[in-house]
Design a binder for these strands. Structure first.
Length: 321
DNA sequence: AAGATGGACAACCGCCTTTTA
DNA sequence: ATAAAAGGCGGTTGTCCATCT
Protein backbone atom coordinates (compact mmCIF):
# COMPACT_ATOMS: atom_id res chain seq x y z
CA UNK A 1 0.00 0.00 0.00
CA UNK A 2 1.42 3.34 -1.02
CA UNK A 3 1.04 5.96 1.63
CA UNK A 4 0.15 9.44 0.66
CA UNK A 5 2.55 12.06 1.99
CA UNK A 6 1.28 13.83 5.09
CA UNK A 7 1.81 17.19 3.44
CA UNK A 8 3.01 18.80 0.23
CA UNK A 9 6.73 18.65 0.89
CA UNK A 10 7.54 21.14 -1.83
CA UNK A 11 5.60 23.90 -0.11
CA UNK A 12 6.40 23.47 3.58
CA UNK A 13 9.35 24.96 5.35
CA UNK A 14 12.16 22.69 6.51
CA UNK A 15 15.19 23.14 8.70
CA UNK A 16 15.68 24.75 12.09
CA UNK A 17 12.68 26.21 13.86
CA UNK A 18 12.58 29.91 14.66
CA UNK A 19 11.53 31.21 18.07
CA UNK A 20 8.42 32.70 16.43
CA UNK A 21 7.41 29.30 15.07
CA UNK A 22 8.09 27.73 18.45
CA UNK A 23 5.84 30.27 20.14
CA UNK A 24 3.00 29.69 17.66
CA UNK A 25 3.22 25.91 18.06
CA UNK A 26 3.47 26.11 21.84
CA UNK A 27 0.56 28.48 22.12
CA UNK A 28 -1.61 26.34 19.84
CA UNK A 29 -0.88 23.11 21.72
CA UNK A 30 -1.37 24.74 25.12
CA UNK A 31 -4.82 25.80 23.96
CA UNK A 32 -5.91 22.78 21.92
CA UNK A 33 -3.66 20.03 23.20
CA UNK A 34 -1.31 17.82 21.17
CA UNK A 35 -2.56 15.51 18.42
CA UNK A 36 -4.25 15.85 15.04
CA UNK A 37 -0.86 16.75 13.68
CA UNK A 38 -1.92 16.76 10.04
CA UNK A 39 -4.39 19.55 10.58
CA UNK A 40 -2.35 21.40 13.16
CA UNK A 41 -0.07 23.44 10.89
CA UNK A 42 -2.97 24.86 8.89
CA UNK A 43 -5.02 25.66 12.00
CA UNK A 44 -2.07 27.13 13.88
CA UNK A 45 -0.87 29.08 10.87
CA UNK A 46 2.44 27.31 10.47
CA UNK A 47 4.06 26.54 7.15
CA UNK A 48 5.36 23.23 8.45
CA UNK A 49 4.67 19.56 7.95
CA UNK A 50 2.51 18.03 10.69
CA UNK A 51 5.15 15.49 11.40
CA UNK A 52 7.73 18.22 11.82
CA UNK A 53 5.42 19.93 14.34
CA UNK A 54 5.00 16.70 16.29
CA UNK A 55 8.75 16.12 16.46
CA UNK A 56 9.43 19.69 17.46
CA UNK A 57 6.90 19.38 20.27
CA UNK A 58 7.93 15.94 21.54
CA UNK A 59 11.68 16.50 21.29
CA UNK A 60 12.02 20.13 22.25
CA UNK A 61 9.00 22.17 23.28
CA UNK A 62 7.23 19.78 25.62
CA UNK A 63 7.21 21.41 29.08
CA UNK A 64 8.32 18.27 30.93
CA UNK A 65 11.56 17.97 29.02
CA UNK A 66 14.67 18.11 31.15
CA UNK A 67 17.51 19.81 29.35
CA UNK A 68 21.19 20.01 30.12
CA UNK A 69 24.06 17.67 30.72
CA UNK A 70 23.38 14.02 31.48
CA UNK A 71 24.32 13.07 35.03
CA UNK A 72 26.59 10.13 35.83
CA UNK A 73 23.58 8.24 37.13
CA UNK A 74 21.69 8.83 33.93
CA UNK A 75 24.69 7.71 31.91
CA UNK A 76 25.02 4.53 33.93
CA UNK A 77 21.32 3.84 33.53
CA UNK A 78 21.47 4.37 29.77
CA UNK A 79 24.38 1.96 29.46
CA UNK A 80 22.66 -0.65 31.54
CA UNK A 81 19.34 -0.31 29.72
CA UNK A 82 21.12 -0.41 26.37
CA UNK A 83 22.84 -3.62 27.37
CA UNK A 84 19.41 -5.11 28.01
CA UNK A 85 17.25 -3.44 25.37
CA UNK A 86 19.66 -2.56 22.58
CA UNK A 87 18.81 0.45 20.39
CA UNK A 88 15.26 0.71 21.73
CA UNK A 89 15.66 4.40 22.44
CA UNK A 90 12.02 5.07 23.13
CA UNK A 91 11.90 2.30 25.72
CA UNK A 92 15.10 3.57 27.29
CA UNK A 93 13.63 7.07 27.35
CA UNK A 94 10.65 5.88 29.39
CA UNK A 95 13.04 5.08 32.23
CA UNK A 96 14.70 8.49 32.20
CA UNK A 97 12.25 11.15 33.26
CA UNK A 98 12.36 14.23 31.08
CA UNK A 99 14.71 12.81 28.47
CA UNK A 100 13.64 12.13 24.90
CA UNK A 101 14.56 9.14 22.81
CA UNK A 102 16.25 11.46 20.33
CA UNK A 103 18.34 13.09 23.04
CA UNK A 104 19.41 9.74 24.45
CA UNK A 105 20.21 8.40 21.01
CA UNK A 106 22.34 11.43 20.24
CA UNK A 107 24.10 11.20 23.58
CA UNK A 108 24.81 7.55 23.01
CA UNK A 109 26.25 8.11 19.56
CA UNK A 110 28.36 11.13 20.45
CA UNK A 111 29.56 10.30 23.96
CA UNK A 112 28.92 6.88 25.39
CA UNK A 113 29.69 4.86 22.29
CA UNK A 114 33.10 6.47 21.93
CA UNK A 115 33.83 6.10 25.61
CA UNK A 116 33.11 2.39 25.50
CA UNK A 117 35.20 1.92 22.38
CA UNK A 118 38.11 3.69 24.01
CA UNK A 119 37.81 1.32 26.93
CA UNK A 120 37.97 -1.63 24.58
CA UNK A 121 34.32 -2.48 25.09
CA UNK A 122 32.08 -3.31 22.20
CA UNK A 123 29.12 -0.87 22.41
CA UNK A 124 26.83 -3.36 20.70
CA UNK A 125 27.53 -6.47 22.78
CA UNK A 126 28.74 -4.64 25.91
CA UNK A 127 31.57 -7.09 26.19
CA UNK A 128 35.27 -6.57 25.96
CA UNK A 129 36.38 -6.51 22.37
CA UNK A 130 38.49 -9.44 21.32
CA UNK A 131 40.15 -7.28 18.67
CA UNK A 132 41.63 -4.86 21.18
CA UNK A 133 41.98 -1.49 19.57
CA UNK A 134 45.47 -0.58 20.62
CA UNK A 135 45.81 2.58 18.57
CA UNK A 136 42.79 3.86 20.48
CA UNK A 137 44.26 2.80 23.79
CA UNK A 138 47.44 4.65 22.95
CA UNK A 139 45.47 7.70 21.90
CA UNK A 140 43.72 7.70 25.26
CA UNK A 141 46.98 7.20 27.06
CA UNK A 142 48.48 10.09 25.13
CA UNK A 143 45.56 12.32 25.99
CA UNK A 144 46.09 11.54 29.64
CA UNK A 145 49.80 12.26 29.37
CA UNK A 146 50.80 8.67 29.92
CA UNK A 147 52.79 8.61 26.73
CA UNK A 148 52.89 12.28 25.97
CA UNK A 149 55.06 13.61 23.19
CA UNK A 150 56.70 10.32 22.48
CA UNK A 151 57.73 9.86 18.90
CA UNK A 152 60.58 7.43 19.37
CA UNK A 153 59.26 3.89 18.84
CA UNK A 154 61.50 2.56 21.57
CA UNK A 155 60.02 4.96 24.07
CA UNK A 156 56.52 4.09 22.92
CA UNK A 157 57.21 0.44 23.51
CA UNK A 158 58.77 1.17 26.86
CA UNK A 159 55.84 3.27 28.00
CA UNK A 160 53.37 0.68 26.86
CA UNK A 161 55.39 -1.90 28.66
CA UNK A 162 55.01 0.29 31.73
CA UNK A 163 51.27 0.33 31.26
CA UNK A 164 51.16 -3.41 30.71
CA UNK A 165 53.40 -4.14 33.65
CA UNK A 166 51.49 -1.81 35.90
CA UNK A 167 48.27 -3.45 34.92
CA UNK A 168 49.72 -6.89 35.43
CA UNK A 169 51.12 -5.88 38.75
CA UNK A 170 47.80 -4.45 39.88
CA UNK A 171 45.95 -7.50 38.69
CA UNK A 172 48.29 -9.80 40.55
CA UNK A 173 47.84 -7.78 43.69
CA UNK A 174 44.08 -7.68 43.43
CA UNK A 175 43.96 -11.42 42.98
CA UNK A 176 46.35 -12.02 45.85
CA UNK A 177 44.43 -9.63 48.03
CA UNK A 178 41.17 -11.43 47.40
CA UNK A 179 42.70 -14.86 47.70
CA UNK A 180 44.40 -13.99 50.98
CA UNK A 181 41.03 -13.08 52.45
CA UNK A 182 39.29 -16.24 51.38
CA UNK A 183 40.85 -19.54 52.36
CA UNK A 184 38.50 -21.33 49.99
CA UNK A 185 40.01 -19.60 47.02
CA UNK A 186 43.31 -21.33 46.72
CA UNK A 187 44.32 -20.32 43.25
CA UNK A 188 43.99 -17.60 40.69
CA UNK A 189 41.94 -19.76 38.37
CA UNK A 190 39.23 -20.19 40.99
CA UNK A 191 38.97 -16.47 41.56
CA UNK A 192 39.13 -15.74 37.86
CA UNK A 193 36.23 -18.03 37.24
CA UNK A 194 34.17 -16.07 39.73
CA UNK A 195 35.11 -12.56 38.67
CA UNK A 196 35.88 -13.10 35.01
CA UNK A 197 39.33 -12.12 34.03
CA UNK A 198 38.28 -9.85 31.20
CA UNK A 199 36.37 -7.70 33.62
CA UNK A 200 39.41 -7.33 35.78
CA UNK A 201 41.57 -6.46 32.83
CA UNK A 202 39.17 -3.79 31.68
CA UNK A 203 38.86 -2.37 35.16
CA UNK A 204 42.60 -2.26 35.47
CA UNK A 205 43.17 -0.55 32.17
CA UNK A 206 40.54 2.07 32.92
CA UNK A 207 42.06 2.62 36.34
CA UNK A 208 45.49 2.98 34.84
CA UNK A 209 44.22 5.56 32.44
CA UNK A 210 42.98 7.77 35.23
CA UNK A 211 45.27 10.79 35.65
CA UNK A 212 45.20 10.45 39.42
CA UNK A 213 46.14 6.79 39.31
CA UNK A 214 47.87 5.81 42.52
CA UNK A 215 48.95 2.69 44.29
CA UNK A 216 45.47 1.36 44.58
CA UNK A 217 43.20 -0.22 42.11
CA UNK A 218 39.72 1.17 41.99
CA UNK A 219 36.96 -0.63 40.20
CA UNK A 220 34.41 2.10 40.07
CA UNK A 221 30.82 1.12 39.53
CA UNK A 222 30.88 3.56 36.66
CA UNK A 223 33.62 1.67 34.87
CA UNK A 224 31.94 -1.58 35.63
CA UNK A 225 28.56 -0.46 34.43
CA UNK A 226 30.08 0.76 31.22
CA UNK A 227 31.22 -2.69 30.41
CA UNK A 228 29.26 -5.25 32.27
CA UNK A 229 25.84 -6.36 33.25
CA UNK A 230 24.65 -5.16 36.62
CA UNK A 231 24.63 -8.75 37.81
CA UNK A 232 28.32 -8.66 37.21
CA UNK A 233 28.80 -5.65 39.40
CA UNK A 234 26.65 -7.30 42.02
CA UNK A 235 28.93 -10.31 41.92
CA UNK A 236 31.98 -8.20 42.52
CA UNK A 237 30.34 -6.02 45.17
CA UNK A 238 29.05 -9.02 47.10
CA UNK A 239 32.48 -10.56 46.85
CA UNK A 240 33.88 -7.35 48.26
CA UNK A 241 31.51 -7.23 51.20
CA UNK A 242 32.00 -10.91 51.95
CA UNK A 243 35.70 -10.33 52.19
CA UNK A 244 35.66 -6.97 53.92
CA UNK A 245 37.02 -5.12 50.92
CA UNK A 246 36.00 -1.48 51.33
CA UNK A 247 33.18 -0.27 49.13
CA UNK A 248 32.98 3.36 48.01
CA UNK A 249 29.80 5.36 48.40
CA UNK A 250 29.09 4.86 44.71
CA UNK A 251 29.37 1.13 45.07
CA UNK A 252 32.95 0.98 43.91
CA UNK A 253 35.35 -1.53 45.31
CA UNK A 254 38.70 -0.25 46.45
CA UNK A 255 41.52 -2.72 46.54
CA UNK A 256 44.45 -1.20 48.32
CA UNK A 257 47.40 -2.92 46.78
CA UNK A 258 49.70 -1.83 49.59
CA UNK A 259 47.95 -4.40 51.76
CA UNK A 260 48.76 -7.22 49.39
CA UNK A 261 51.92 -9.25 49.63
CA UNK A 262 54.70 -7.49 47.74
CA UNK A 263 55.30 -10.27 45.29
CA UNK A 264 55.71 -7.86 42.42
CA UNK A 265 57.44 -4.53 42.26
CA UNK A 266 55.54 -1.75 43.97
CA UNK A 267 56.31 0.99 41.47
CA UNK A 268 57.19 1.24 37.81
CA UNK A 269 60.68 2.32 38.70
CA UNK A 270 61.23 -0.88 40.63
CA UNK A 271 59.98 -3.05 37.85
CA UNK A 272 62.55 -4.94 35.87
CA UNK A 273 63.47 -2.72 32.96
CA UNK A 274 66.36 -3.13 30.60
CA UNK A 275 69.15 -0.88 31.69
CA UNK A 276 69.77 0.72 28.36
CA UNK A 277 70.12 4.25 27.16
CA UNK A 278 67.21 5.51 25.09
CA UNK A 279 69.58 7.29 22.78
CA UNK A 280 71.16 4.00 21.83
CA UNK A 281 67.87 3.05 20.16
CA UNK A 282 66.94 6.37 18.65
CA UNK A 283 67.60 5.12 15.14
CA UNK A 284 65.34 2.09 15.36
CA UNK A 285 63.12 2.08 12.33
CA UNK A 286 59.93 0.81 13.88
CA UNK A 287 58.24 -0.43 16.98
CA UNK A 288 58.64 -4.03 16.00
CA UNK A 289 62.41 -3.63 16.10
CA UNK A 290 62.17 -1.79 19.40
CA UNK A 291 60.03 -4.46 21.03
CA UNK A 292 62.46 -7.07 19.82
CA UNK A 293 65.34 -5.20 21.40
CA UNK A 294 63.36 -4.92 24.61
CA UNK A 295 62.61 -8.62 24.55
CA UNK A 296 59.00 -7.84 25.34
CA UNK A 297 57.88 -11.24 24.22
CA UNK A 298 59.55 -12.66 27.26
CA UNK A 299 57.03 -11.49 29.82
CA UNK A 300 57.08 -14.20 32.42
CA UNK A 301 53.89 -15.62 33.92
CA UNK A 302 51.76 -13.71 31.49
CA UNK A 303 48.49 -15.41 32.27
CA UNK A 304 46.38 -12.41 31.40
CA UNK A 305 47.18 -11.63 27.82
CA UNK A 306 49.41 -8.60 28.17
CA UNK A 307 51.92 -10.25 25.88
CA UNK A 308 49.22 -10.40 23.25
CA UNK A 309 48.60 -6.72 23.72
CA UNK A 310 52.23 -5.94 23.06
CA UNK A 311 52.31 -8.33 20.13
CA UNK A 312 49.29 -6.61 18.67
CA UNK A 313 50.90 -3.24 19.20
CA UNK A 314 53.94 -4.46 17.40
CA UNK A 315 51.85 -5.69 14.49
CA UNK A 316 49.91 -2.41 14.35
CA UNK A 317 53.13 -0.50 14.19
CA UNK A 318 54.56 -2.72 11.47
CA UNK A 319 51.40 -2.35 9.39
CA UNK A 320 51.48 1.39 9.71
CA UNK A 321 55.14 1.85 8.85
C1' DA B 1 42.71 36.08 10.04
C1' DA B 2 40.56 32.66 7.56
C1' DG B 3 39.62 28.23 5.98
C1' DA B 4 39.35 23.31 7.45
C1' DT B 5 37.83 20.02 10.57
C1' DG B 6 35.21 17.70 13.90
C1' DG B 7 31.84 17.42 17.71
C1' DA B 8 27.23 18.07 19.27
C1' DC B 9 22.65 18.17 18.57
C1' DA B 10 18.36 19.28 16.09
C1' DA B 11 15.71 17.83 12.42
C1' DC B 12 14.41 14.91 8.68
C1' DC B 13 13.41 10.52 6.18
C1' DG B 14 11.45 6.29 5.45
C1' DC B 15 9.56 2.36 7.28
C1' DC B 16 6.63 0.02 10.62
C1' DT B 17 2.75 -0.39 13.84
C1' DT B 18 -1.45 1.15 15.74
C1' DT B 19 -5.71 3.46 15.46
C1' DT B 20 -9.79 4.91 13.30
C1' DA B 21 -13.62 5.20 10.20
C1' DA C 1 -12.37 -6.87 7.49
C1' DT C 2 -10.08 -3.33 5.23
C1' DA C 3 -7.85 0.81 3.87
C1' DA C 4 -6.18 5.11 5.11
C1' DA C 5 -4.46 8.15 8.51
C1' DA C 6 -1.84 8.99 12.46
C1' DG C 7 1.72 8.11 15.36
C1' DG C 8 6.15 5.98 16.63
C1' DC C 9 10.71 4.62 15.90
C1' DG C 10 15.57 4.24 14.53
C1' DG C 11 18.95 5.66 11.25
C1' DT C 12 20.84 9.42 8.89
C1' DT C 13 21.68 14.08 7.52
C1' DG C 14 22.19 19.05 8.10
C1' DT C 15 23.57 22.93 10.67
C1' DC C 16 25.92 25.41 14.03
C1' DC C 17 29.83 26.33 16.60
C1' DA C 18 34.31 25.72 18.69
C1' DT C 19 38.90 24.43 17.88
C1' DC C 20 42.76 23.64 15.06
C1' DT C 21 46.10 24.62 11.42
Amino acid sequence: MVRAPCCDETKVKKGPWTTEEDEILKEYIETHGPGKWRDLPKKAGLNRCGKSCRLRWTNYLRPDIKRGKFTDDEERLIIHLHSVLGNKWSMIATKLAGRTDNEIKNYWNTHIRKKLLMMGIDPVTHRQRTDLDLPNLITVANKLNLCNNITNPFESALRLQDVANLARMQLNNVLLQAISQDPLLTNVDALSSILGINALQTGLVSSLLQPNFSNSCIFSSNALNQGFDVSYEDQICSLGSERNIPCGTDGSLVFNTSQAPPLVAASPEEMAQPTVSLSAYSNLSNLSEATEQLNLSDLADDNFGWKDILDQLSRCSTTKS
